[in-house]
Amino acid sequence: MTNLYLVEHAVVQAEGYIVSDMNGEKVMMSVDTGKYYNLGRIGGRIWELIAWPTTVNRLVDTLTSEYDVERPVCEEQVSGFLQSMHKEALIEVINLEA
């Protein structure tokens, strides 16, 4: 069973993080919690794409146009990644039905 977390929602970067590029990978640090995050190369691109509120479907559209990946695979893996980000409060989720 696929995990299509947040597919019907929009997501946007949360504030309060120091972000930097290191060898093509996006790294972040929370001043509040002292936690450091490495988003990797693909995660860094996702982070760039959600600088403004973006639906997950639109995010997947962009990624499948830029990367060699089938849409169902991309959708599932991106939704899992966003779930991890959401748990760490790195992103804010906007319910489009509200």
């Binding site: 990797g40 995660g43 990367y67």
Partner: peptide, 20 residues
């Protein structure tokens, strides 16, 4: 017809490290 070379995909992962 689109003929752009696409980049290699990798599974996006979130690594965390508590610096303190």
């Amino acid at each position: 017809m689109e003929n752009r070379t696409k980049q290699q995909w990798q599974v996006p992962t979130l690594e965390t490290l508590d610096v303190s």
